[in-house]
Simulated scan of single mutants.
Amino acid sequence: MERIIRKQLLYRTGVEYGDYALNHVLGCAHGCRYPCYAFLMNKRFRNITYEDWTKPKIVENAVELLEKELPKLKGKARYINMCFATDPFMYKQLDVVQLSCDVIALINSYGIPVRTLTKGVYTLNAAKVSNHPENSFGITLVSLSEAFRQKYEPNAAPIDERIKGLFAMHMCGFRTWVSIEPYPTPDIIEQDIEELLESISFVNRIVFGRWNYGKLSYPKPDQFYREIASKVLEFGEKKGIEVVIKKEIENVR
C-alpha cells in the first residue's frame, strides 16, 4: 500500500455531532457508488479520480504527528472521531486496520476517547487495544439488502459481518452506535426501516440522515424523511437509545 506524508493530522471538525477528528488514510477501498462527501470534496479540491480514491494511501507519519499533537489536546478534547473522510477499519485492508489500532491505543494513552465509524468489520485486536471506558464503535448501515450493498457499497463488508462485528464490540462492553446515512428513498430500494432498526437494537446511539449530494427523483422526499425520522425517534424512545436526527431533516419540519 502506498504511503504519503502529512504536516498535520488532528483538526476541529464542523460536523454537528463531532469534536476533533483525524484522517490517517487518503482514499477508501470500499468504492461507494452513492454520493460520498469525502470523495466529492477530494475530487473537487484535489482532482482525485474514483480510481485513485479506491486505492487508499496510508499517512506514513500518522503516529509521529499524533505524538506531537495529542499533548495539546489533553483535557480539551471530549473525543476524537475516526474518521469523516476515510474508513479506519476498511474491509480486507490489513495495513489500514493495524494503523487504526495503533492510533486508538495512542489516543487512549492520553486519556482521550475515540469514536469510530466503519463499513468494515471490527477485529479482536481493536477490542484489545481499546483502553478508554468512553470509546464508541460504530458502523454505517443504510440497508439490510446484500443486493443494495453490492451495488452501492461494492467493496465494503457484507451486512451480516458488519453487524456481527459491532455486536462483538457491544459484548466486550464498549459503547456502540450506527449511522443510518445516507438512507435511500423507496425509488432506490423498498425496505422496512423498522426491520433495520431491530437488527441493531443493542446499540447506544443512532444517527439518521438523508440521501445527499445527488438529485432525488422520489416525490416529496422531505415528507418521506420526516416520516422515517419519526419512526427512528419512536424506536429510540422505546429501546432507550439516543437518537440524533441530522439537521437537514430537522430543518424542514
Rank of each mutant, 00 (worst) to 15 (best):
R175K: 15
L9Q: 10
A85Y: 15
V142K: 08
Y17Q: 07
R12H: 14
D87P: 09
N61C: 05
C83L: 02
L106T: 09
M171Y: 07
E60T: 02
A157S: 14
N47C: 03
V59E: 00
P219A: 07
L166F: 05
H170E: 12
K68Q: 14
I228D: 02
L233C: 12
P221Q: 05
S109M: 11
K247T: 14
K239G: 06
I4P: 01
G18T: 06
S217L: 11
F84T: 01
S230E: 15
I189A: 03
F224P: 11
S230P: 08
G165A: 04
S145I: 06
G165Y: 02
M82K: 09
L66R: 08
Q191I: 07
I245Y: 08
V25I: 12
E146Y: 05
N212P: 00
Y50T: 08
I58N: 11
E134I: 00
N155D: 09
Y20A: 05
R78C: 04
A156M: 06
E198N: 14
V15C: 00
H30D: 01
T118G: 01
E67P: 03
Y183G: 02
G173L: 09
I48P: 00
L233W: 07
E181T: 14
I206Y: 01
I188C: 08
R175W: 06
E190T: 11
R226M: 14
I104H: 05
K74A: 15
S145Q: 03
V243G: 06
L94D: 15
R78Y: 10
M1S: 08
N23C: 04
E248K: 13
K151Q: 13
S230I: 02
N47H: 13
W211P: 00
R205Q: 11
I180P: 04
P154Q: 06
I228Q: 05
L141C: 04
K246T: 13
F208E: 09
F224G: 10
R175V: 07
E181W: 03
S130N: 04
I58K: 11
V97P: 04
E146T: 01
K246F: 06
E161Y: 10
P88W: 11
K231L: 07
E250M: 15
K119N: 06
I107R: 08
Y20R: 09
I245H: 03
N251A: 09
Y11K: 09
E248P: 08
Q191F: 03
A157P: 00
I180T: 06
V244D: 12
T86Y: 01
N204P: 06
A62W: 03
A85M: 15
A147F: 11
A77E: 06
I48C: 00
C28I: 04
K247C: 00
V244G: 03
E161A: 14
E181A: 15
P71N: 09
I159V: 15
I104M: 13
F174C: 02
L66W: 05
R44I: 00
H132W: 01
G165M: 00
K239P: 03
Y20K: 08
